[in-house]
Amino acid sequence: MNAEAEATASTLDTVKLGVSLLILIAGIGGFYQFEQESLLLRVIGLLLVAALAVFIALQSKPGKSVWSFAVESRTEVRKVVWPSRQETMQTTLIVFVMVLLLGIFLWLVDMLLAYILKVITG
């Protein structure tokens, strides 16, 4: 009985996602179909249709899990300790200096290899 209930829920979720996708496709098609109308009205209509599609998609189990993931991600980002301006500037300066030194080193190695190749090939 439980497997049958899960299959029904899964089928219902698939239907919800399919309807959501069809509504979104119809909204995009309507946006281009009514090109003689004001751009502002078409954009507002498209945003409303997209909001409806998202609302329907969020009613499914995968939609709820995506929403939950987004909320948890936002919570985790708030916990991050961001570097100060001074730390950022110092790290950026170190990166620039190291890139410059590595570029000069590789340029010298390239010149040496070109010289050796020139000596070998005459």
Results as ranks from 00 to 15, higher is better:
74 R>H: 13
51 A>C: 09
62 P>C: 05
59 Q>K: 11
34 F>E: 03
4 E>L: 10
29 G>K: 02
60 S>H: 08
51 A>M: 05
35 E>Y: 08
89 M>P: 07
87 E>M: 04
34 F>T: 02
23 I>E: 00
67 W>N: 11
27 G>N: 01
77 V>H: 09
11 T>A: 14
60 S>N: 06
95 V>Y: 01
75 T>I: 15
41 L>Y: 12
81 V>F: 01
68 S>R: 10
93 L>E: 05
96 F>M: 08
22 L>P: 03
61 K>N: 15
101 L>M: 07
85 R>I: 10
79 K>P: 01
9 A>W: 09
96 F>Q: 08
29 G>A: 00
35 E>F: 04
21 L>E: 03
64 K>V: 09
32 Y>G: 08
13 D>P: 11
50 A>S: 14
37 E>F: 11
49 V>R: 02
79 K>N: 11
73 S>Y: 11
56 I>Y: 01
13 D>I: 10
9 A>R: 15
56 I>A: 05
55 F>D: 07
51 A>Y: 08
63 G>I: 05
50 A>Q: 06
15 V>A: 14
64 K>E: 11
61 K>E: 12
98 M>F: 10
68 S>Q: 12
18 G>P: 07
18 G>C: 07
91 T>P: 00
70 A>T: 14
37 E>I: 04
97 V>H: 02
20 S>D: 00
51 A>P: 00
64 K>P: 04
52 L>R: 04
81 V>Y: 02
21 L>T: 14
42 R>K: 04
14 T>M: 15
90 Q>P: 00
40 L>G: 12
42 R>W: 01
88 T>S: 09
11 T>P: 10
73 S>W: 08
89 M>K: 15
6 E>W: 12
87 E>G: 02
76 E>Q: 09
99 V>I: 15
53 A>L: 08
25 I>G: 03
49 V>Y: 03
62 P>M: 02
66 V>Y: 09
82 W>T: 13
35 E>G: 02
16 K>M: 14
86 Q>F: 12
78 R>E: 14
8 T>A: 15
94 I>A: 00
64 K>G: 11
24 L>M: 10
42 R>Y: 00
33 Q>H: 03
44 I>H: 03
14 T>D: 15
7 A>Q: 13
17 L>E: 07
27 G>P: 05
11 T>I: 14
65 S>E: 15
77 V>M: 09
79 K>C: 05
100 L>S: 03
6 E>A: 07
26 A>F: 02
7 A>C: 10
38 S>P: 04
22 L>W: 05
2 N>M: 09
73 S>L: 10
45 G>W: 01
21 L>V: 05
42 R>F: 01
56 I>M: 02
4 E>V: 08
53 A>F: 06
27 G>W: 00
75 T>V: 09
63 G>Q: 07
58 L>G: 11
3 A>F: 11
10 S>Q: 15
64 K>C: 07
52 L>P: 06
13 D>V: 13
95 V>K: 03
56 I>G: 06
39 L>S: 06
32 Y>N: 07
72 E>H: 12
42 R>I: 03
49 V>W: 06
